[in-house]
Amino acid sequence: MASFGGGAMSAILTNLDANGQGSVLAAEAQAVVRRFGDQVALNGLDLELRSGEFVALLGRSGSGKTTLLRLLAGLDAPDQGHVRVPSARTVVFQEPRLVPSKRVWRNVVLGLTGERATKVAAVQALTEVGLESKSLAWPATLSGGEAQRVALARALVRSPKLLLLDEPFAALDALTRLNMQHLVAELCARHQPAVLLVTHDVDEALRLADRVLVLREGVVGAEVHLPGVRPRLIDDLDPSLRRELLAELGVVD
């Protein structure tokens, strides 16, 4: 198993454990470069995430979205540049990625140690996602939406300062997706982590985010600030915003 590091000498990944409240910096990437062979996935990217902030990351396939998320998650190391993230950070992937041999509540407290890994804590987190009745179920018996909510509970039980969402709604049906988006918005408002949501879906970004970044050729190619409280109705937004983002992604209406 590869360990946490593994990048070049210049790569530095340090922990950012500031006493996070208000608009304190929760995570940052400075001039980050990541190459895979001849392919440059990230090419000197800069990013700052403040606590309580919900940032959506858009980009076409191969634009480096997932690479950036993996760097922030500590699953990969940059070739050059700095990544600074809090130690309390969690990821929700596109697939639930639950451990099939553990009951739901044990999945929720996976990797927690000592007193925090109690069933009480697990059930509390499951209650937040509306699944307290499933705490003793096996993952294989859950529906796709339920499994993804368990993955969300697993991320939240650790009180993350940085919550990384890698297209977490992409594999869900349209109705479940809307419900999940509302749930995520509500939970993020309550727990106030810095959130980075990687998505293909412009409407999803407009609905949930304070700030939308468009990744292009390994750097942030465009940035859009969104007004008002979230989750918002798309109809309340200036339609030009949507057109602008789609144009940035190379889609012409």
Partner: peptide, 22 residues
């Protein structure tokens, strides 16, 4: 499943614990 192992690693399971639990 590599993906489950990766998720477990992102939840700071390492070494013998990762092997034993996942």
């Amino acid at each position: 499943d590599r993906k489950v192992v990766e998720a477990a690693r992102s939840y700071s399971l390492r070494g013998p614990k990762l092997i034993g639990q996942v």
